[in-house]
Amino acid sequence: MKEQLTMHKKLSLRDRAAEDLAYIRSAMDRVEGSSSVSGLGGILMGSIALVTAVLSRPIFDLQAQLLVWIYAAAIAVVVGGLTSWLKVRRQASHIPWDPVRRFCLCLIPNVGAAAAVTVALWHGPGVVFLPAMWMLFYGCGVLAAGTYAVLPVRLMGLCFILGGVIALWMPMWGVISLGLTFGGLHIVFGAWVYFRHGG
């Protein structure tokens, strides 16, 4: 009986210690997640998308329009990465490599899949579906990556998926919907992160 009681006490102490360690880990993860996504970066990426929407509007060839968007995406990725880096340097006591690595692991496969679909559909009639595909893949990536980040990031991913689904049914509005989603959603959710989650 005494042995059983000692064993029970040992187990509950170990459980309590393990729970505390898990709680500390999750608290640290939440902070790292909130400090590694830049709201300012989101606003700037959204602004780049809006400018791209305006610039690509007079172009009549769809492939040429989409090419402008690909260049703009490359610039936006650099801007987003740089602003996130600056935010981390300003806020965190060390570089939180873990959330950065997890964020990239969730996002990069989706971007890769989008690139593969782009190459496959580029010269065929399916090119009109590319804007919707980009939204869907990007939304899935952001939603998955948002598991390790703050709530607005997950919501933004969800909105991109919804936008992509709608755009699938209206392929003729594809490029305009790119401006609305990549521009509007980045600015709205970027502002949310900027004002509520430290910049």
């Binding site: 709680y23 500390i24 608290a27 640290m28 902070v31 400090s35 806020q91 060390h94 939180p96 430290g198």
Partner: peptide
């Protein structure tokens, strides 16, 4: 206490956190 442990753990990762940030995180 979990809240105090959470505050200290969060501040160990981030140099500075505002009251509102801590409240939302925890």
């Amino acid at each position: 206490d979990r809240v105090r442990l959470g505050v200290l753990s969060s501040l160990a990762v981030s140099r500075v956190l505002t009251f509102r940030q801590l409240r939302d995180l925890l």
